[in-house]
Design a protein around this nucleic acid. Structure first.
Lengths: 197, 197
DNA sequence: CTAATTATGTAGCGATCGCTAAATATATAA
DNA sequence: TTATATATTTAGCGATCGCTACATAATTAG
C-alpha cells in the first residue's frame, strides 16, 4: 500500500464516467463541473489523478480504444478480408448503437471541429482516425501477399473506402438512425467487394 | 431608404464571415468575440442585425445550404439515378475540398456532439441531415416510377447508403485527406450501383 | 508519539462566456 | 428646426470557463 491518505474513489470507474460524458457531449461541450459531478469527485482530486482536462480526455480516449472500440483490431483477425470487412461494419454498428453508452464514435464526434483552444485534441483525433485506417490498410496489404485479395486491388483505397463508410455510419448513429438502417447500409456497402480479377 | 441611421456594413458579407467561422470551428467552438472581429462589427450591431448567437447560426446555416451546399438539389436534377449519385459524390467532394472555405460539411461538423446549451442547434442539424437524405430518397422513389431504377430497389436504403458515404467523406475531408483519395472512395462506392433486376 | 506524504473539501482565482444598458451619431419626417 | 428612429460606441453585466491555493483529514515511516 502506498504512503499517504488512500484515494477514496475508483480511478477506472471515474475514467469511465468521464469517457461517457466526453462521448456524449464532445470535448468542448463537456465542462469540468459536469465531469466532477458525474465522476463523483471534486476538482482537486480530478487534477491530482488526471492532470488537466486535456490529459483526462486523452486517458478517456485510450480507454475508449481499448474497450468499446476494440472491435477494430478484433475484426482484423478474421481469416478472410471479406469477413474482416463484414466484422468491421457489424462491430462499428454494434458499438455505435450500444444502449450502454452514447451513440456514435468518440473518434468522430469527440472534436471534429473545435475552437483554437481545443486544436490539439482535434489533431489527436485526426491522428487516431488515420491510425485506424492505416491498420485496416496493412491488413489488406497482407491479404494481397497471401492471395486472399487479388494483386490488382489497391489496399489503401479499399481501406479508405471501408473507413469512410464507418465514419459515415458513426455520423448517422449520432443522428438517431435505427440499427436496422445502418445494417442495410453495411450490407449494401459490401456489394462492391472485389470479385474482380 | 428606411428611416434612422443607415447600417454601415453589408449584412450578407457579415453573414458569410460568420458562416466561415462556424464552419471551421463549429457552433460551440466559435465565440461571439471571434465572430464580431471576423465580421468587422461590434456586439450590439450583431445582436440588432441577427438576434443572438443561435439565430445567427441558423441564418448562416440557411446561407450554407443555399450557396456552398446547393450541389445536392442540383445533383437531384440529373436525368438518371446513376448520374444523380455520381453528381452527389463529386459535388460533395468539390465542396468539402474547396480551398475558398473550410474543409468538410457544416451539417456534420457544425454541432455533432455538444453540451446541453447547444442541444437545439445539434437537433436542428440532425433534422437538416435527415432532410437531405429524404430529398435523395424521394428522387430515387420517383426514378422507380419511371423505371430508371428497378422496382425491387429500396429507395430509402439506397438513399441512406449514398448519404452515409457522403457524411463519411465529410469526416475524411475535415481530417486532412486528399481530394484524390476521396475521389477514389466515391468511384469505389459507385461499384455497387444496382445492375441487378 | 512525531514527521512526512497523499487525498479531500472549501473557497475563489483570472479569464472568457453570451449578452446588454446607456450614451452618442446619423439618417428621415414633420 | 425639432422629433423620431435606427446604428454605433463604450463599458460592463452576471454566469461560467478551466484551474488552483489553502487548510484539513487520513494514511505510512520512523
Amino acid at each position: 500500500m502506498p504512503k499517504g491518505r488512500p484515494r477514496e474513489f475508483d480511478i477506472q470507474k471515474a475514467l469511465d464516467a468521464a469517457l461517457l460524458l466526453f462521448w456524449r457531449h464532445g470535448y468542448e461541450g463537456t465542462s469540468l463541473a459536469a465531469l466532477t459531478k458525474a465522476m463523483g469527485i471534486n476538482m482537486p482530486s480530478l487534477y491530482a489523478a488526471f492532470g488537466n482536462k486535456e490529459m483526462l480526455f486523452r486517458k478517456a480516449l485510450d480507454r475508449y480504444l481499448q474497450k468499446p472500440a476494440s472491435y477494430l483490431p478484433m475484426a482484423l483477425q478474421e481469416p478472410t478480408t471479406r469477413r474482416v470487412a463484414e466484422k468491421l461494419f457489424s462491430g462499428a454498428i454494434d458499438m455505435a448503437m450500444n444502449p450502454r453508452h452514447p451513440d456514435g464514435c468518440l473518434l468522430v464526434q469527440g472534436a471534429l471541429a473545435t475552437g483554437p483552444a481545443a486544436a490539439p485534441i482535434r489533431k489527436e483525433l485526426n491522428l487516431r482516425r488515420a491510425a485506424a485506417e492505416a491498420a485496416v490498410r496493412r491488413r489488406f496489404e497482407q491479404a494481397i501477399t497471401t492471395a486472399d485479395l487479388p494483386a490488382s486491388v489497391d489496399a489503401a483505397q479499399l481501406a479508405c473506402y471501408i473507413i469512410t463508410v464507418i465514419w459515415g455510419l458513426s455520423v448517422q448513429a449520432a443522428s438517431g438512425v435505427t440499427r436496422a438502417q445502418l445494417q442495410d447500409v453495411a450490407q449494401f456497402a459490401m456489394r462492391c467487394w472485389p470479385n474482380w480479377a
